[in-house]
Amino acid sequence: MKTPYFSFAVGELPKGCQLCVRGEKLVLFTTGACPRNCFYCPLSPWRRGDVVYANERPVKSTEDVIEEAITQEAKGAGVTGGDPLARLDRTVEYIKLLKERFGRDFHVHLYTTGALATKKNLEKLYDAGLDEIRFHPDLFNPSSKLFRVEIENIKNAFDFDWDVGGEIPAIPGQFERMEWYAEFLDKLGAKFLNVNELEYSEMTLKTLLEMGYEPVSDESAAIKGSLETGLKLLEWGEKNTSLSYHLCTAKLKDAVQLRNRLKRMAKNVAKPYMEITEEGTLRFGVAEYDDLDELYSFLVEEAEVPPEWLYINREKGRIEMPEEVAVELAEAVEGDVKFFVVEEYPTWDRLEVERTPL
């Protein structure tokens, strides 16, 4: 069936996905370290090291994780990497932290290659409170020794009372390997297999093009043939396995999951002079000038703008204000002052997505 989230499903979506599509899942990136080097891995260069992020926020202390979860009003977390098991103690610490702070109902799922999923390591994750584990073995390199280790380790997960599933990209030309993995999980008693539409990133585009893969269009990062491969697996899986399936599309990630997360965050971080748009971005006016203090004094004393409408953002070198105030000032103020209307994500990094000169 087609879901309301521009994705496709067989059976019920895993609990982690249900929360994710509503924007209720904190993305907890516990390390960029990984035992593998997949040709389709989209990680940016600055995340390939041993770093920790909560959504877009760099984590320097446990309080950063808690603060980000509160800002998002998160009801769960997806623990990812890299491979979170490559820094197991750290990952366990964060799972315990979230469970202790937000309660047992705060749902945590985790992605892993399986390479480090020994019985002892899985026991630590289970004892920490992990609710759902998703395995992504080196499915497209089945002759490697690491793949054989991963497949054996996946079997360990069924000794614990949590939801076990798989998560793989839909790679055109690799249907038989995907089919094999679905059968493998089904025989073990797994609950689901998530299939992601393959997308390129700045890190993978050159490699994917050299391998013969192409984007579906100039406007999309999705790879041609991936969606069709995923749909084919769902149709086969519905008839031949008892697994639930979710084909997560590129459109879901951008138009649904990210948008819903931004909207949850925006209402908690927006200042009084900011408008929250339908997309969850923050829209407001800015004025830029070499001397911000001089500009502030001019706007308050000469232009008679109420001080409560102005905010000096020294980090970004500008004075922020309601959009309509910036529009009026742009028509009235002469000289070197520049006025804009900007839209930003309500995220920690405040990514600017649009700037309109006035």
Results as ranks from 00 to 15, higher is better:
288 E>N: 01
284 F>S: 04
60 K>V: 13
343 E>T: 13
14 P>F: 10
115 A>M: 06
57 R>L: 05
14 P>G: 08
339 F>W: 07
8 F>G: 00
146 L>D: 05
320 E>V: 13
54 A>G: 13
216 V>D: 07
100 E>C: 01
244 S>L: 02
14 P>W: 10
261 R>C: 01
86 A>R: 07
148 R>G: 01
218 D>M: 14
259 R>L: 12
274 M>G: 07
345 Y>L: 15
223 I>A: 00
291 D>F: 03
293 D>F: 10
227 L>E: 02
121 N>F: 07
42 P>I: 09
115 A>H: 13
192 F>C: 00
50 D>Y: 09
263 K>Q: 08
202 E>N: 11
138 D>G: 09
256 V>T: 04
12 E>S: 12
183 E>S: 11
296 Y>L: 15
155 K>E: 13
198 L>R: 13
158 F>C: 07
143 S>M: 09
206 K>V: 15
151 I>P: 01
227 L>A: 00
60 K>I: 04
330 A>W: 12
21 V>H: 06
71 T>N: 09
7 S>D: 15
133 I>S: 03
256 V>Y: 00
25 K>M: 15
20 C>Q: 10
98 L>G: 12
122 L>A: 01
246 H>Q: 12
193 L>P: 02
96 K>L: 14
22 R>Q: 15
138 D>F: 00
158 F>G: 03
83 D>C: 03
9 A>V: 13
284 F>E: 05
12 E>D: 12
318 R>Y: 05
37 N>E: 14
66 I>N: 03
337 V>K: 02
338 K>H: 07
114 G>E: 04
5 Y>D: 10
92 V>G: 00
332 A>W: 13
257 Q>S: 12
310 L>P: 11
335 G>R: 04
189 G>S: 09
259 R>I: 06
78 G>C: 07
312 I>T: 14
101 R>H: 10
2 K>Y: 09
241 T>H: 01
3 T>V: 06
